[in-house]
Nucleic acid binder design. Structure first.
Length: 693
RNA sequence: GGACGGUUAGCUCAGUUGGUUAGAGCGCCGUGCUUACACCGCGGAGGCCGCAGGUCCGAAUCCUGCACCGUCCACCA
């Protein structure tokens, strides 16, 4: 056995064999066992539209550490894997692919398109699954779920029906965020703001002068609003004033509204309810006094027939023409244009196109702040209550405040999308659900569909481990929908990790070319080195600067473990057991005592989600306490035939492998299989050394 | 505009309820191929713990203010 051990550890040869050994042994598949404590993690289902990236490697590592630790602690440990069809995200990726091939989405018959997209998604899903295996993820593949599985869709539909019955769903004509490029509505979370410098025009408007950056929306004006406290305009309030526009004369009503800032521009503002969120709300407050929204821009970002001679022009072009015509007609004084006006513009978070607030029919919304008809709290309040009463705890704690703050000012959730890819909305042929509406049900939906009895036993789950960047998109929705549907918060802890950045702390992105492919790292240095590098010296919630040096440092550690084992196995090969069981040197006592202490501390660290602490402790212990001190001492002791050094070497090695296993599963299992003193068939199901908590 | 995070050795970062000479990895300097490992061992240099106050017997750790970097939320024409 020992003679077969190479001088240097070579992960490539063994990792995949070891993984098959575990998977075939059924060690990832827990039983429903009332005598055991359940430990459950739902894997955040990766988007099945590409390969795994460094962020996936991080979550796989952290979740695997917890799962392996709890499995060794004797809990019935389920880590349920999955894949997400990822509606809009996948649509964007797929549209780009089509574009490269010179094709267009709307030129392909829908059925054909959907089939092609499904093939694309399933093939990505298969790739991801094999990549997760390479990372050592000990998740239960026999329970794997996909967000387009029939039973998941059924659950999504039944939740939708429940919401409808409770009066929490409404369908209507509402102003939504419209992406002109992707031809779909987006939720408030899917837009971001960019600072732009645009001209601010002071337009003559009857007796008023109005400041605006978007003169082209003027044709959609239905009122002029002023602040009730503004003495300058008091005399016009309530009147229809005559105004001249580039299209001729018209009459428009002047109203009072608190929201108008007297100090901005001229203190008078045009109200364009069809193309501006604030104006839409203004109209809602003055429905009886002023006409409703007048649409002047179509869904392709062009002026419609309401714009007279400008009809058919794109927004930018129309704006230029209109401004020029206004100047000609004396409706705009060139000197009064403020050219360097800085303001924020809403853009699509994927493509950066300007978001057009658009009035669309048949949009589905979920009411966030209204109580359901059947009684109880609103979705928002259910979530707030659960967090405030500590049924759900955030790690790190500060995310609790961020979560609650976001909950405070929630608007209704637009759950309809006009893309083909997704779960169709029942009875609505042209729209699908926002993908987060289905993934927001992931914990209970996946458990209900996995195996009989799973939901009852494994729900609520223990930990939701995911990226801090999707706390609103996903975590918030899971909390609300989870409690609403099942009556219980879907998880007890939310552990949030940061972003994996490159060595200069830059965001990884394809365009920058600084993306680290985790599978390439595995190929080169082994999965254990990658995993250890990701947890070592990284505290919860913090971003990680990821570098080659960190990985090689851990590869060296793996090599150290390998060689320590090589030494221990060869040194103890020929010894008789219990040669001199009574005698223990001070060095023997010290190492055993330290081991005990380390095991206890590590358990506490992992229980408290301080994985980096646990990783550093075992690293320190193994390398510097065990190898540098004890192994060196043991050589002297063996030369003197003093004590029972050989047994202690084997014992400490075996116990160390247990402590290391959640972090570096492959090398530890491989060495464990060579031990003469192993206690179980596999290290993965060994007992954690810490006897008491 | 609002909230939050960071600022500790050359670099990347730990430091969990405040307590003896502040730690790690990489890097650097010196040295050793001692029969596990040179992907190593041994020894060493290097830190007014962002700045200014305050609380305390005692503060990197708690409080106040400031500076710089970063993140998130909101978004008024």
């Amino acid at each position: 056995m020992v003679q077969q051990m190479e001088k240097n550890y070579n992960p490539k040869d063994s990792e995949q064999k070891t993984y098959s050994f575990w998977e075939e042994g059924g060690y990832f598949t827990p039983e429903v066992d009332e005598k055991k404590k359940p430990f459950t993690i739902m894997m955040p289902p990766p988007n099945a539209n590409g390969a795994l990236h460094a962020g996936h490697a991080l979550f796989a590592t952290l979740q695997d550490i917890m799962t392996r630790y709890h499995r060794m602690k004797g809990d019935s440990s389920l880590w349920l894997p999955g894949a997400d069809h990822a509606g809009f995200e996948t649509q964007v990726v797929f549209d780009k692919k089509l574009e490269k091939e010179g094709r267009r989405r709307h030129e392909i018959p829908k059925e054909e398109l959907l089939k092609e997209m499904m093939d694309f998604t399933l093939s990505n899903k298969a790739t991801m699954e094999s990549q997760l295996r390479r990372l050592g993820a000990s998740c239960d593949w026999s329970r794997a779920k996909f967000t387009l599985d029939k039973d998941i869709i059924d659950t999504v539909y039944s939740t939708f029906e429940k919401l409808e019955k409770d009066g929490l769903i409404y369908k209507g004509s509402r102003l939504i965020n419209w992406c002109v490029k992707h031809q779909t509505s987006l939720s408030d979370l899917e837009i971001k703001y960019e600072e732009r410098t645009d001209p601010l025009y002071y337009i003559k408007y009857g007796p008023f002068k109005l400041a605006t950056v978007r003169p082209e929306t003027k044709f959609g004006d239905t009122a002029i609003a002023v602040n009730p406290k503004d003495e300058r305009y008091k005399k016009y309030v309530g009147q229809d004033v005559e105004v001249e526009t580039v299209l001729g004369k018209a009459r428009i009503k002047v109203i009072e509204d608190e929201s108008v800032d007297m100090d901005f521009g001229t203190g008078a503002v045009k109200v364009t309810p069809a193309h501006d969120f604030a104006d839409y709300e203004t109209w809602q407050r003055h429905k009886d006094e002023i006409p409703g929204p007048k649409i002047v821009i179509d869904r392709y970002g062009r002026m419609n027939e309401m714009a007279g001679p400008y009809a058919g022009m794109k927004i930018g072009e129309a704006r230029e023409k209109i401004v020029a015509d206004m100047i000609k007609k004396g409706l705009l004084d060139e000197k009064e244009i403020e050219h360097n006006y800085k303001h924020n513009v809403a853009v699509c978070f994927k493509c950066g196109s300007v978001i057009e607030p658009a009035l669309m029919d048949n949009q589905w919304f979920v009411k966030m702040t209204e109580k359901p008809k059947s009684g109880g709290l609103s979705l928002r309040d259910l979530a707030v209550k659960a967090v405030k009463e500590e049924n759900i705890k955030f790690i790190p704690e500060r995310f609790e405040k961020i979560f609650l703050q976001w909950m405070e000012n929630l608007r209704d959730w637009n759950i309809s999308r006009q893309i083909p890819w997704g779960i169709p909305i029942p009875g609505d042929k042209k729209q699908v659900f926002d993908t987060w509406f289905s993934s927001g049900q992931w914990p209970f939906a996946a458990l209900k569909g996995a195996k009989k009895g799973d939901f009852e036993y494994f729900y609520p789950t223990t930990v939701m481990e995911t990226g801090a960047d999707i706390i609103f998109f996903w975590v918030a929705r899971m909390v609300m929908l989870g409690i609403y549907v099942t009556g219980q918060a879907p998880f007890k802890y939310v552990y949030l990790h940061g972003l994996v950045r490159d060595k200069d702390k830059q965001k990884m992105s394809k365009s920058k070319g600084n993306v680290v492919d985790p599978l390439g790292v595995v190929e080169l240095h082994g999965a254990d080195a990658l995993r250890m590098a990701l947890v070592f010296a990284n505290s919860p919630g913090a971003d990680i600067a990821f570098s080659e040096e960190k990985i090689t440092a851990q590869r060296r550690f793996a090599n150290k473990i390998w060689n320590a084992a090589r030494f221990v196995l060869s040194a103890t090969e020929k010894t008789e057991p219990n040669k001199n069981p009574q005698a223990r040197t001070q060095a023997d006592k010290d190492i055993l005592e330290t081991l005990e202490k380390i095991a206890k501390e590590m358990a506490k660290d992992i229980d408290n989600f301080q994985f980096h602490e646990a990783a550093q402790k075992i690293y320190q212990f193994f390398w510097h306490t065990f190898c540098d001190v004890y192994i060196e001492e043991s050589k002297k002791q063996m030369a003197r035939e003093q004590g029972n050094t050989e047994q202690i070497l084997l014992y400490v090695l075996r116990e160390s492998l247990k402590l290391l296993h959640p972090f570096m599963p492959f090398i530890t299992e491989e060495i464990y299989q060579m031990l003469p003193n192993k206690e179980a068939k596999a290290l993965i199901i060994e007992k954690w050394p810490c006897r008491k908590d």
